[in-house]
């Protein structure tokens, strides 16, 4: 039985929950997998750390929460710092280049980075950054098929923005494929896999980064992003009684 645990993380308002919903729906309804999606509920709303989790399995999902995720997607510094420690040593880390400042990578963690928010802004709307990220995630992890992801969109994104969301997804997906292609080309030249200390293989525009410095160097082209905690700007959404 193959099981994959995925955590999507960022801050409220980025559409983090939506990411898990889209992936979960795609996997469950169109990729013939079982995917249970859970989110952390709290009185927080926009601006604070936010995460959702997906357990994907060929058989029925039993334990509904993730324990040691194989895949972590972080779209904010706080989320990255919160959840990076639980990522498996051989897991996959996916970040937004401009929003996350990396620490040294542990073990055999594979890291993929994309300036998803910047891409979204270039496409005219920052709100679709999560879809750029989803395209990227689909390309580099191959957990879910791009066809299923696109099929899952109607009903989960507003109808009038469906095309834009699909384009955002494609943008991220194509970027992901390119990154994979580039890293494949470089791989044969790289040192043997067993290398405990993977050396930096600088790739254009600091995309596949294996060295923390590379990230530090990347200059954000967008407005400065909140580094740590963003205070909730709205009232708590969920009623506590």
């Amino acid at each position: 039985m193959k099981m994959t645990e995925i955590r999507f993380s960022g801050f409220g308002g980025q559409g983090i929950i939506r990411c898990a919903l889209i992936s979960g729906k795609a996997l469950s309804l169109y990729d013939k997998k079982n995917a249970s999606m859970n989110q952390s509920f709290g009185p927080e709303a926009r601006g604070s750390a936010c995460s959702s989790q997906l357990v994907v399995s060929d058989d029925r999902v039993l334990y509904p929460y993730i324990t040691r995720p194989q895949i972590l997607i972080s779209m904010s510094q706080e989320a990255y710092e919160n959840y990076e420690p639980e990522l498996r040593d051989d897991g996959i880390l996916i970040i937004d280049t401009d929003l996350v400042k990396l620490k040294p990578l542990r073990g055999k963690i594979k890291m993929f980075a994309i300036p998803s928010t910047r891409f979204a802004e270039e496409m005219g709307n920052r709100i679709i950054a999560n879809l750029v990220m989803m395209g990227f995630f689909t390309a580099v992890t191959k957990v879910v098929t791009p066809e299923a992801m696109k099929k899952a969109l109607p009903g989960l994104v507003p109808d009038r923005f469906l095309d834009l969301n699909i384009r955002a997804f494609d943008k991220g997906y194509e970027y992901g494929l390119r990154i994979l292609e580039e890293s494949k080309k470089k791989r044969p030249k790289a040192k043997p896999k067993v290398a405990s200390k993977p050396k930096a293989k600088a790739t254009p525009r600091a995309t596949v980064k294996t060295k923390p410095k590379a990230a530090a160097k990347t200059k954000p082209t967008t407005k400065p992003k909140p580094k740590t905690k963003v205070k909730p700007t709205t009232k708590p959404k969920l009623k506590k009684k």
């Binding site: 898990a20 919903l21 979960g24 729906k25 469950s28 309804l29 079982n34 995917a35 249970s36 999606m37 859970n38 989110q39 509920f41 999902v61 509904p64």
Partner: peptide
């Protein structure tokens, strides 16, 4: 319960 109530599945 909350877990089932908030868990998305097919």
């Amino acid at each position: 319960d909350e877990c089932v109530g908030h868990m998305h599945e097919k």
